[in-house]
Design a protein around this nucleic acid. Sequence first.
RNA 1: GGCGGCGUAGCUCAGCUGGUAGAGCAGCGGAAUCAUAAUCCGUAGGUCCGGGGUCCGAAUCCCUGCGCCGCUACCA
Length: 551
Amino acid sequence: MGPHDRVLITAALPYANGNLHVGHIGGSYLPADTYARYCRSAGREVLFICGSDDHGVPATLTARTEGCTPREVVTRYHEAQVKDFQGLGIRFDIYGSTSSPQHAAASQEFFLRVHRNGFLEKRRTKQLYDAQAGIFLPDRYVTGTCPFCGQSALGDQCEHCGKDQDALELIAPRSAITGSVPQVRETTHWYFRQDLLEGKLREWLAAKESWRAPVQNFALGMLKQGLKSRAITRDLSWGVPVPLPEDPDAEGKVLYVWFDAPIGYVTFTADLLEERGQARERYADWWKNPEVPIYHFIGEDNIVFHALMWPAMLMAEGTFQLPANVVANCFVNFQFPGHDEEKMSKSRGTAVWIHEYLRDGDPDPLRYYLTFIAPEAQRTAFKPDDLARRTNDELVGTFGNFIHRTLTFAARYFDGKVPEPGIPVAEAEEVQTHLKALPRLVGVELDAFRLKSAMGMVMDLARMGNRFFDYQAPWKQRKEDPARCATTLHTCLHIVKALAILSEPFMPFTSEKAAGFLGLSAGERGWAAAATPLEAGRPLGAAEPLFRKIE
RNA sequence: GGCGGCGUAGCUCAGCUGGUAGAGCAGCGGAAUCAUAAUCCGUAGGUCCGGGGUCCGAAUCCCUGCGCCGCUACCA
């Protein structure tokens, strides 16, 4: 058993205004699912939480374009995302929605506590307003000319000179939504005084020893520059209403998505417990219990929020514990053969969409490949050729082949049963020794979130199996030394069992099939069971190829 | 501009707190035939981006130059 008996794992909330591509999966959902599966296999009590982030401007714009309601937009994408996750075996305990009434209530309560604790400040500001669309424009929806370099720029930042912009300073501003000339209007917003928490945040972050360096460095670097208080309300109709009924300024305002979204993790935890017949309030057993580590899996773009703003929110609220780790991956770029690496992009057609992949692709090879190229420390690129090569060489050739050759051999020459080990053989004992230690070794890597390394150890086991099989040459031993042959197969079957169990976090569908060949019941598939061999006489099922070649 | 990252074999990358360069794939040579021709063995291949410094000793620490990249607060 690992360091903790109970863990709370979250994966970044996908925005419910688009489909998922391999970058999303590799960056956040797959690592989170892999870790969650490992924890479950190791016997820990796990809550694996995710859901769609339904609020925000883009959903309202999509709705406007399509002539439907934001609700319809987010429902459609929410369902599409659920399908994608299921197809890939990403198994959340709950996939909630931030547009639920429960979430609104939870966010409002959180807001009020932060307010009462003195971390909110009301300010009157000027902002650009699109009269034609009838909405205040977020900075990035304003285009114009950069006052610094004279080139065209967006309202939040100039791409040419890199300077931060104040949308109000842009020359000849236009609304990116309607193209009309925006008006300057006054409005009131509530600002979150995260700057008051800089010292506490720095102290908390600096003490983290096991965080990935890029995450910690990045967050500490931001702190060095100083946090700005940040508006956490918006003039929109789609979102969680600001819960200050006695204040006329609050009318028609909602919470900023990045304020309500992370609270979604808490809401969904309560939703899940309710589903399981417990009181919603029991969420506190997880969120306010220092015995339970909370791990947030996110993409690199989210570091600011999860390592700074969200912890600041939790500190300001005052009753929650802070995340134990924020596990961030970098982006995955995309590279067609013969082309330069590019960002995943909808418009340029350089994204591999999950629903398209799943039409004729198997989930496990994608999971395997994404874990192998996982950008744990730096960006990497998704290359279709590379996916095919790794599938064919490593999954078909090494992993699948070892299991298949072992099982077909046992079926043919040992009557489809696990043989009684014959005489002791030194090499077989070495394998036993290795297998005895392996679950723990792989577990150490997983608990340190070195998923690529952990999976590499599992693949190495398959290589070891092939090497052992060839070296022993049971097809020869069978005739010359049947006792040794029995030992060989007994050992190989133990390796198959270990592969079936230890590959589960990475390739759950394959693991399920392999465990089925061995007739392993759910109770026999626990992580530590990989260390012990199959008992002699156990009947084996018929093996079939675990993977098919690509192309 | 500010902050950060990367540059190791033909390719993709490992190399934690400094102690004689590693893996997979591709290449070359061989073995084997139980297996989805899937496997195994052997072999070759690197002034660890350049330059300085610290040290008995640096891919590893410090400085500097070059090249690539990211973030900069609503793209995982």
